[in-house]
């Protein structure tokens, strides 16, 4: 039985410094720190994210996979700019760069679109990783550079042919699943977009991968979403938040359909969140950053064990 920490004293000190840097960044910008409940009435609707259910004495509550739901209720209630630095939980995630329990930084800025929020993310990241130069490119440009299909214009057949050439094991249903094929395209292209030691923002996603981002009409229509990748590691995901409540409800229904199609348990959104969205979310952009991964990059570590006080305790059973 090893009871000792998996991170060194100097790494824990660096981690503490980074948490202080984050708080200083938001204090200087006048963004309010909030601290919402970890136990929620609903889990994540996203079919790719599994929530941990907890028995709180006769009732089931879900450890939050991100503080998004509670923070949007605060925004709808007029909180103004807010950030949260805390724990989030995702079941069945375990790898050198995944843990079931992890530290997430999530924030929302009023009146920002995804480009203004990318600027804000870049300023914060530069305070932690001053030597990293961040590129900024639309997803279609990354795909063109990688010789991959255009994510907005390629037919589903072209996407399937590309996936097959990459060695994806597909059923006929998989080969017709545009959203699945785009997920593969995104993960392959974005991870390898910039050389080791560098990174950047990729923005303007296909509408199938809009998540909760606004879609700008046009040909092609583009989702105002971005990701930040450094050293091939996904660090942040953000977007210009959808404000249209009908459109938001339609996306929740689409998630629920996808859950059913995959045989996953139903996970309807928290009614309190729906009521808050109906009352009106202000025009804002939001983003979440994996803080453990940020510390890992700052310490040039290659495994989360090296930057977590007790890394192996947080790995799920599958390791």
């Amino acid at each position: 039985m090893t009871w000792r920490p998996t991170a060194s004293r100097s790494t824990l000190a660096r981690r503490g410094d980074i948490l202080a840097t984050i708080r200083a960044h938001f204090a200087a910008a006048g963004v309010l720190e909030v601290d919402t409940p970890l136990l929620g009435a609903a889990g994540a609707g996203d079919p790719a994210i599994a929530s941990c259910a907890v028995d709180v004495g006769g009732r089931v509550r879900y450890l939050q996979t991100s503080p998004e739901s509670a923070m949007k209720r605060l925004l709808a209630a007029g909180s103004g700019d807010i950030y949260q630095l805390g724990k989030a939980f995702r079941r069945e995630e375990s790898s050198p760069i995944h843990r079931c329990e992890f530290t997430l930084l999530e924030w929302y800025r009023l009146g920002f679109d995804h480009h203004a929020l990318m600027d804000d993310v870049a300023t914060l990241v530069a305070r932690v990783l001053p030597e990293v130069r961040l590129a900024r490119e639309p997803l279609s440009a990354l795909c063109a550079r990688a010789g991959a299909p255009d994510p907005h214009r390629a037919t589903t057949g072209e996407l399937a042919a590309w996936a097959r050439a990459l060695g994806l094991q597909m059923t006929p249903q998989d080969a017709a699943d545009r959203s699945l094929l785009l997920d593969l395209l995104l993960s392959e292209v974005v991870r390898r977009a910039w050389p080791t030691g560098g990174g950047g923002f990729v923005y303007d996603f296909p509408v199938e991968q809009a998540a909760y981002a606004r879609i700008r009409p046009g040909v092609p229509a583009l989702a105002s979403r971005f990701e930040l990748v450094i050293d091939g590691i996904e660090l942040a995901n953000g977007w210009h938040e959808l404000a249209d409540v009908d459109e938001q409800q339609a996306r929740y229904r689409e998630e629920e359909r996808a859950r059913q199609a995959r045989g996953l348990p139903s996970m309807p959104p928290d009614p309190a969140l729906l009521a808050a969205l109906a009352a009106g979310l202000p025009d804002c952009a939001g983003v979440a950053i994996g803080v453990d991964r940020l510390v890992m990059l700052a310490c040039a570590a290659h495994d989360l064990d090296d930057v977590l006080a007790f890394g192996r305790d947080q790995a799920s059973e599958t390791t």
């Binding site: 996203d46 790719a48 995630e93 790898s95 995944h98 996936a163 990459l166 060695g167 994806l168 094991q169 998989d174 959203s179 699945l180 997920d183 593969l184 995104l186 993960s187 991870r191 991968q209 998540a211 990701e227 996904e234 995901n237 979440a288 994996g290």
Partner: peptide, 30 residues
Amino acid sequence: EMVKPGKGQAFNRVKVRNLMTGRTIERTFK
């Protein structure tokens, strides 16, 4: 290698060796 994005489907990228021919290839699984 598990490739699990913050949003969207996760994939397993595997290197496998054919035990009949000895050849190593890459495959991706959902």
